Simulated assay, not measured.
Amino acid sequence: MNSSPLAGDFLRSRPALHTTPLTGIEKLRTDGTDASGTEAPLFGRLESEGEVRAICYRPPRRRLNLTTVTPEEADALAARLADLGHSAAGVNSDDDTATAFAEAWQRHAGAVPVPDWRARLYRPGTLTPPEQRPEGRGRVLGAQDHEQLLRWCGEFVAAVGEAPTIEADDWAGSRFADKRFTFWETPDGTPVSMAGSTAMAGGMIRVDPVYTPAHLRGRGYAGAVTVEVSRVALAAGATDVVLFADPANPTSNALYQRIGYVPLAEFGGYKFTYDTAEAG
Protein backbone atom coordinates (compact mmCIF):
# COMPACT_ATOMS: atom_id res chain seq x y z
CA MET A 1 0.00 0.00 0.00
CA ASN A 2 1.40 3.38 -0.93
CA SER A 3 0.77 7.01 -0.08
CA SER A 4 -0.20 9.36 -2.91
CA PRO A 5 -0.70 13.05 -3.75
CA LEU A 6 -4.44 12.45 -3.35
CA ALA A 7 -3.86 11.16 0.17
CA GLY A 8 -1.81 14.26 0.94
CA ASP A 9 -4.60 16.50 -0.30
CA PHE A 10 -7.05 14.61 1.89
CA LEU A 11 -4.91 15.03 5.01
CA ARG A 12 -4.39 18.72 4.34
CA SER A 13 -8.14 19.23 3.94
CA ARG A 14 -8.60 18.86 7.72
CA PRO A 15 -5.14 19.50 9.16
CA ALA A 16 -6.21 19.83 12.79
CA LEU A 17 -8.01 16.47 12.92
CA HIS A 18 -5.27 14.88 10.83
CA THR A 19 -2.41 16.20 12.95
CA THR A 20 -0.92 12.78 13.74
CA PRO A 21 -0.84 11.35 10.20
CA LEU A 22 0.45 14.65 8.79
CA THR A 23 3.47 14.61 11.09
CA GLY A 24 3.81 10.83 11.27
CA ILE A 25 3.92 10.25 7.53
CA GLU A 26 6.41 13.07 7.07
CA LYS A 27 8.65 11.39 9.63
CA LEU A 28 8.28 8.07 7.81
CA ARG A 29 9.41 9.71 4.58
CA THR A 30 12.62 10.61 6.38
CA ASP A 31 13.14 7.49 8.50
CA GLY A 32 12.21 4.76 6.03
CA THR A 33 12.51 1.18 7.30
CA ASP A 34 13.10 0.08 10.86
CA ALA A 35 16.56 -0.02 12.38
CA SER A 36 17.19 -3.56 11.16
CA GLY A 37 16.08 -2.64 7.64
CA THR A 38 13.73 -5.63 7.51
CA GLU A 39 10.35 -3.93 7.55
CA ALA A 40 8.96 -1.07 5.51
CA PRO A 41 6.17 1.30 6.55
CA LEU A 42 2.64 0.40 5.54
CA PHE A 43 0.36 2.89 3.80
CA GLY A 44 -3.24 2.53 2.67
CA ARG A 45 -6.10 4.70 1.47
CA LEU A 46 -9.84 4.35 1.00
CA GLU A 47 -11.17 5.87 -2.22
CA SER A 48 -14.70 6.47 -3.41
CA GLU A 49 -15.55 7.96 -6.83
CA GLY A 50 -11.95 9.04 -7.27
CA GLU A 51 -11.72 10.83 -3.93
CA VAL A 52 -9.75 9.73 -0.86
CA ARG A 53 -12.04 9.30 2.14
CA ALA A 54 -9.59 7.88 4.68
CA ILE A 55 -5.96 6.83 5.06
CA CYS A 56 -4.05 4.49 7.32
CA TYR A 57 -0.36 4.03 7.96
CA ARG A 58 1.78 1.87 10.20
CA PRO A 59 5.38 2.66 11.07
CA PRO A 60 7.65 -0.38 11.24
CA ARG A 61 6.88 -2.50 14.30
CA ARG A 62 4.39 0.07 15.54
CA ARG A 63 0.67 0.76 15.72
CA LEU A 64 -1.71 1.34 12.88
CA ASN A 65 -2.86 4.95 12.65
CA LEU A 66 -6.20 5.50 10.98
CA THR A 67 -8.34 8.51 10.07
CA THR A 68 -12.09 8.43 10.66
CA VAL A 69 -13.99 5.55 9.05
CA THR A 70 -17.35 3.86 9.61
CA PRO A 71 -17.58 0.52 11.45
CA GLU A 72 -18.22 -1.19 8.11
CA GLU A 73 -15.12 0.39 6.59
CA ALA A 74 -13.06 -0.55 9.65
CA ASP A 75 -14.19 -4.15 9.27
CA ALA A 76 -13.31 -4.19 5.57
CA LEU A 77 -9.85 -2.76 6.32
CA ALA A 78 -9.20 -5.30 9.06
CA ALA A 79 -10.22 -8.14 6.76
CA ARG A 80 -8.00 -6.84 3.97
CA LEU A 81 -4.95 -6.42 6.19
CA ALA A 82 -5.43 -9.86 7.71
CA ASP A 83 -5.79 -11.47 4.26
CA LEU A 84 -2.54 -9.81 3.17
CA GLY A 85 -0.73 -11.14 6.23
CA HIS A 86 -0.09 -7.78 7.86
CA SER A 87 0.07 -7.34 11.61
CA ALA A 88 -0.14 -4.45 14.04
CA ALA A 89 0.88 -3.73 17.59
CA GLY A 90 -2.27 -1.67 18.12
CA VAL A 91 -4.37 1.13 16.66
CA ASN A 92 -4.75 4.86 17.32
CA SER A 93 -7.56 7.01 15.93
CA ASP A 94 -10.58 9.00 17.02
CA ASP A 95 -12.49 7.13 19.73
CA ASP A 96 -15.20 5.58 17.55
CA THR A 97 -12.84 4.54 14.76
CA ALA A 98 -10.26 3.06 17.12
CA THR A 99 -12.93 0.99 18.86
CA ALA A 100 -14.47 -0.18 15.58
CA PHE A 101 -11.11 -1.27 14.17
CA ALA A 102 -10.02 -2.95 17.42
CA GLU A 103 -13.20 -5.03 17.46
CA ALA A 104 -12.81 -5.88 13.77
CA TRP A 105 -9.15 -6.84 14.21
CA GLN A 106 -10.13 -9.18 17.03
CA ARG A 107 -12.57 -10.90 14.68
CA HIS A 108 -10.22 -11.16 11.71
CA ALA A 109 -6.78 -11.52 13.32
CA GLY A 110 -7.53 -13.05 16.68
CA ALA A 111 -5.96 -10.17 18.59
CA VAL A 112 -7.16 -9.15 22.03
CA PRO A 113 -7.54 -5.34 22.14
CA VAL A 114 -6.61 -3.57 25.37
CA PRO A 115 -7.48 0.16 25.66
CA ASP A 116 -4.39 2.02 26.80
CA TRP A 117 -4.50 5.60 25.46
CA ARG A 118 -6.98 8.45 25.60
CA ALA A 119 -6.43 12.00 24.42
CA ARG A 120 -8.48 15.15 23.88
CA LEU A 121 -7.48 17.26 20.89
CA TYR A 122 -7.54 21.03 21.39
CA ARG A 123 -7.01 24.02 19.16
CA PRO A 124 -7.01 27.70 20.15
CA GLY A 125 -10.00 30.00 19.91
CA THR A 126 -8.56 33.26 21.19
CA LEU A 127 -5.17 32.87 22.85
CA THR A 128 -5.26 34.37 26.34
CA PRO A 129 -2.10 34.72 28.43
CA PRO A 130 -2.46 33.53 32.04
CA GLU A 131 -4.24 36.06 34.28
CA GLN A 132 -1.20 36.13 36.52
CA ARG A 133 1.47 35.93 33.84
CA PRO A 134 4.72 34.86 35.46
CA GLU A 135 7.75 37.04 35.11
CA GLY A 136 10.24 35.93 32.50
CA ARG A 137 10.29 35.19 28.80
CA GLY A 138 10.30 32.43 26.23
CA ARG A 139 13.59 31.39 24.65
CA VAL A 140 14.18 28.95 21.78
CA LEU A 141 16.65 26.26 22.78
CA GLY A 142 20.14 26.08 21.31
CA ALA A 143 22.79 23.37 21.20
CA GLN A 144 24.00 24.39 24.66
CA ASP A 145 20.62 23.36 26.12
CA HIS A 146 20.68 19.75 24.92
CA GLU A 147 21.58 18.19 28.26
CA GLN A 148 18.74 20.01 30.02
CA LEU A 149 16.33 19.11 27.20
CA LEU A 150 17.32 15.44 27.35
CA ARG A 151 16.75 15.36 31.08
CA TRP A 152 13.34 17.03 30.93
CA CYS A 153 12.14 14.87 28.03
CA GLY A 154 13.16 11.83 30.08
CA GLU A 155 11.20 13.14 33.06
CA PHE A 156 8.19 13.84 30.84
CA VAL A 157 8.23 10.31 29.40
CA ALA A 158 8.38 8.85 32.91
CA ALA A 159 5.58 11.12 34.16
CA VAL A 160 3.12 10.16 31.42
CA GLY A 161 4.07 6.48 31.30
CA GLU A 162 5.47 6.43 27.78
CA ALA A 163 8.08 3.93 26.66
CA PRO A 164 10.91 3.67 25.97
CA THR A 165 12.79 5.99 28.27
CA ILE A 166 14.93 8.67 26.67
CA GLU A 167 18.70 8.30 26.88
CA ALA A 168 21.42 10.24 25.07
CA ASP A 169 22.09 7.36 22.66
CA ASP A 170 18.38 7.08 21.82
CA TRP A 171 17.72 10.77 21.21
CA ALA A 172 18.12 10.78 17.41
CA GLY A 173 15.45 8.10 17.01
CA SER A 174 13.03 9.50 19.58
CA ARG A 175 9.82 11.38 18.82
CA PHE A 176 11.38 14.54 20.27
CA ALA A 177 14.45 14.84 18.06
CA ASP A 178 12.84 16.67 15.16
CA LYS A 179 10.89 19.19 17.23
CA ARG A 180 11.58 22.82 18.07
CA PHE A 181 11.70 23.51 21.82
CA THR A 182 11.15 26.65 23.84
CA PHE A 183 12.00 27.26 27.49
CA TRP A 184 10.15 29.63 29.76
CA GLU A 185 12.88 31.34 31.79
CA THR A 186 12.68 33.44 34.93
CA PRO A 187 14.24 36.94 34.73
CA ASP A 188 17.59 35.53 35.91
CA GLY A 189 17.67 33.06 32.99
CA THR A 190 16.66 29.91 34.89
CA PRO A 191 14.54 27.49 32.77
CA VAL A 192 11.33 26.56 34.59
CA SER A 193 9.12 25.01 31.88
CA MET A 194 9.31 23.88 28.27
CA ALA A 195 7.11 23.27 25.25
CA GLY A 196 7.94 21.58 21.97
CA SER A 197 6.34 22.01 18.57
CA THR A 198 6.34 20.04 15.35
CA ALA A 199 7.44 21.39 12.00
CA MET A 200 4.55 22.84 10.00
CA ALA A 201 2.70 20.25 7.93
CA GLY A 202 -0.33 21.14 5.85
CA GLY A 203 -0.46 24.49 7.65
CA MET A 204 -0.66 22.69 11.02
CA ILE A 205 1.72 22.83 13.98
CA ARG A 206 1.21 20.64 17.05
CA VAL A 207 2.41 21.74 20.48
CA ASP A 208 4.04 18.68 22.08
CA PRO A 209 5.21 18.08 24.73
CA VAL A 210 4.52 20.62 27.48
CA TYR A 211 6.44 19.92 30.70
CA THR A 212 7.13 21.65 34.00
CA PRO A 213 9.09 19.87 36.75
CA ALA A 214 6.83 18.92 39.65
CA HIS A 215 8.37 21.32 42.15
CA LEU A 216 7.76 24.29 39.81
CA ARG A 217 4.13 23.65 38.94
CA GLY A 218 1.21 25.88 39.88
CA ARG A 219 3.02 29.12 39.06
CA GLY A 220 1.71 29.74 35.52
CA TYR A 221 4.88 28.63 33.72
CA ALA A 222 3.22 25.94 31.57
CA GLY A 223 0.49 28.34 30.46
CA ALA A 224 3.03 31.03 29.63
CA VAL A 225 5.26 28.78 27.54
CA THR A 226 2.27 27.21 25.75
CA VAL A 227 0.93 30.63 24.80
CA GLU A 228 4.40 31.68 23.63
CA VAL A 229 4.88 28.62 21.41
CA SER A 230 1.33 28.93 20.05
CA ARG A 231 1.78 32.63 19.32
CA VAL A 232 5.03 31.98 17.45
CA ALA A 233 3.38 29.20 15.43
CA LEU A 234 0.51 31.45 14.37
CA ALA A 235 2.93 34.28 13.54
CA ALA A 236 4.86 31.83 11.34
CA GLY A 237 1.72 31.30 9.26
CA ALA A 238 0.18 28.19 10.81
CA THR A 239 -3.53 27.95 10.02
CA ASP A 240 -4.05 25.34 12.74
CA VAL A 241 -2.27 24.95 16.07
CA VAL A 242 -3.28 21.93 18.11
CA LEU A 243 -2.31 19.96 21.19
CA PHE A 244 -3.38 16.77 22.93
CA ALA A 245 -4.27 16.51 26.63
CA ASP A 246 -5.10 13.53 28.79
CA PRO A 247 -8.86 13.83 29.49
CA ALA A 248 -8.26 12.20 32.88
CA ASN A 249 -6.01 15.10 33.92
CA PRO A 250 -8.29 17.96 35.03
CA THR A 251 -5.35 20.28 35.72
CA SER A 252 -3.96 20.29 32.18
CA ASN A 253 -7.42 20.47 30.58
CA ALA A 254 -8.38 23.44 32.74
CA LEU A 255 -5.07 25.13 31.96
CA TYR A 256 -5.45 24.84 28.19
CA GLN A 257 -9.01 26.11 28.31
CA ARG A 258 -8.00 29.09 30.47
CA ILE A 259 -5.48 30.19 27.84
CA GLY A 260 -8.01 29.94 25.02
CA TYR A 261 -7.80 26.39 23.70
CA VAL A 262 -11.11 24.66 22.93
CA PRO A 263 -11.81 20.89 22.65
CA LEU A 264 -12.06 19.56 19.11
CA ALA A 265 -12.23 15.75 19.28
CA GLU A 266 -11.63 12.69 21.46
CA PHE A 267 -9.00 10.14 20.48
CA GLY A 268 -8.15 6.68 21.75
CA GLY A 269 -5.80 3.78 21.29
CA TYR A 270 -5.64 0.03 21.83
CA LYS A 271 -2.71 -2.31 22.11
CA PHE A 272 -3.14 -5.78 20.64
CA THR A 273 -2.02 -9.01 22.28
CA TYR A 274 -1.77 -12.29 20.44
CA ASP A 275 -1.85 -15.87 21.69
CA THR A 276 0.56 -17.33 19.14
CA ALA A 277 2.37 -14.44 17.42
CA GLU A 278 3.76 -11.05 18.16
CA ALA A 279 2.47 -7.98 16.38
CA GLY A 280 4.87 -6.42 13.92
Score class of each variant (00 low, 15 high):
S3N: 10
L17Y: 03
H18I: 00
H18A: 01
L28A: 11
L28N: 04
T30G: 12
F43L: 05
E51A: 14
R53C: 12
I55K: 12
R58Q: 06
T67F: 04
T68I: 15
T68R: 15
T68K: 15
E73W: 14
A76W: 08
N92F: 01
D95V: 02
A104K: 01
H108E: 08
H108V: 08
P130G: 09
R133G: 10
E135D: 10
L141T: 07
F156Y: 08
V157L: 10
V157R: 09
G161M: 11
T165V: 15
T165W: 13
I166L: 15
E167Q: 08
A168I: 13
A168C: 13
D170K: 06
A172I: 13
S174K: 01
D178I: 02
K179S: 00
T182Y: 10
E185N: 12
S193E: 00
M194V: 00
M204V: 00
I205N: 00
I205G: 01
V210F: 03
Y211D: 10
Y211P: 05
T212Y: 00
P213M: 05
T226P: 06
V229S: 11
A235Q: 15
A238C: 02
F244A: 06
A248G: 09
N249K: 09
T251F: 10
S252D: 08
A265V: 11
E266W: 09
E266K: 07
T273Q: 05
T273L: 09
T276M: 07
